[in-house]
Design a binder for these strands. Structure first.
Lengths: 235, 235
DNA sequence: CGCTTCATAATGTCTATACATATTCAGGCG
DNA sequence: CGCCTGAATATGTATAGACATTATGAAGCG
């Protein structure tokens, strides 16, 4: 069938022992030479397995001391923050984007400070629809110095997030997730009551030290949730 | 200073080229033999660098075809879901936990189904305080078959999450993050208005196929946010 | 022209070896 | 007793070579 690589098998077995509780945090795992004998392979093979686990934060390795099961102090979860258009399409639902405003301007001094941008910015607002229902209200600023092309893009057809992901890929990013009461403008755009709960996602992405874009999305509470996973099945 | 490992340097340089936009998704990166010549090192060294990037989802490697910059389809962010007590303490704020109810029972048939648990469960509710203010209301179920010791733990002193992380480490987990209007019970416990927005975090953790615990935490909207990062600076 | 077959080029895995580096542990010395 | 020194040890990095695997693209065949 599928001959699994040996280093992967070793990795998986040790991971299983950790997740299964046979190995507990602080426990020492056999040294490389011992595992090497146990599996009858070279040290590099064992090393690859252990390095991978150490990379995941599951092992802590100290020279001369050995390899130890790490403390799961802060569960690092993998959160998928997909492009909305793609995510909704992937769920087999219909998607629509409504551009409600678009303007180019120099950011106000305070904003420029917060954005870390002195250049001109494109400001966009709009609404994401799923199955014909408003799902999220989006306010976005885009640094035109870094992404001049977007000034010519037709953002009434393509939501800016989708355009950016296709044209300015692999930026660094930070997301802040919180809950808020819908402000008037948001409530009106989403057709919900003022003050109704919203999941708010604020994202800032950069290239090097320059901010590329800054988004704030208000999701209608009942219609969206984020999922984060941790674990070997974490795929 | 600290001589950085060569494979790490190679990895970092390619990553920088991807994040800096010199290499775009779909672009092909030099084959191992070429990089090997460029850096004057062995193939295994290059391979280690590229394998690491492939593990991060930043490269896609195909035999015979070469290595390509991956599409950042779904931005996989690392979300730290820390233990609340530890997280608040780390921010230098005071923390308090109020146990409001605790009971052991067999879950109702419907619940048992949803939990994937037939055994007895310990049900706990309580409130997390930060700086004297209610921060989160927690409802939790714990599988006593997997964690019998917790029946004897003093959960009025230690919040169950902290107890579990110390006693049942390294489980698999799934988090669902959403926003809701505070139900009556939650609003009362948190001292907020009924229907006020809350950030809701539902977590389920398992060991193998068995559910260990299931939590629902309602956070007061203004007092908490989750942060997820992606990027090399993502530390 | 379309299909199959096959050599080839790339990555994937593994080995055996070597030396580097950091940490511990045991002595030795003041 | 405390501090320094040095040896032992486990991991960290790197090498050169070997063979496996697999998609590709071209050659050959019907």
């Amino acid at each position: 069938m599928k001959p699994i690589a040996l280093h992967e098998r070793i990795r998986a077995e040790i991971e299983a022992a950790i997740l299964g509780g046979q190995l507990r945090p602080g426990d020492r795992i056999p040294k490389e030479t011992e595992l090497m004998a146990e599996y009858g392979c070279a040290r590099m093979t064992v090393n690859k397995a252990l390095s991978a686990l150490a990379g995941n934060g599951m092992l802590e390795r100290r020279k001369r001391a050995g390899s130890f099961v790490a403390q799961p102090r802060t569960q690092s979860m993998v959160l998928d923050v997909p492009d909305l258009a793609a995510a909704i399409a992937a769920r087999g639902q219909s998607y629509r984007w409504d551009l409600t405003s678009r303007k180019i301007s120099a950011p106000a001094r305070a904003e420029a400070e917060a954005l870390g941008v002195r250049a001109k910015v494109l400001s966009v607002t709009g609404v994401h629809f799923s199955e014909g229902l408003p799902l999220a209200f989006e306010e976005r600023m885009i640094n035109l110095a870094l992404v001049p092309d977007i000034a010519e893009a037709d953002l009434s057809q393509t939501p800016p997030g989708s355009w950016l992901i296709a044209h300015v890929p692999w930026t660094e990013a930070e997301n802040r997730i919180s809950a808020t009461a819908a402000p008037v403008a948001v409530a009106r755009a989403l057709g919900i009551a003022r003050g109704a709960p919203c999941l708010m996602l604020e994202r800032r992405t950069w290239r090097g030290t320059d901010t590329v874009t800054r988004v704030r999305q208000h999701f209608v509470a009942d219609r969206y949730e984020l999922v984060a996973r941790f674990g070997p099945g974490g795929n």
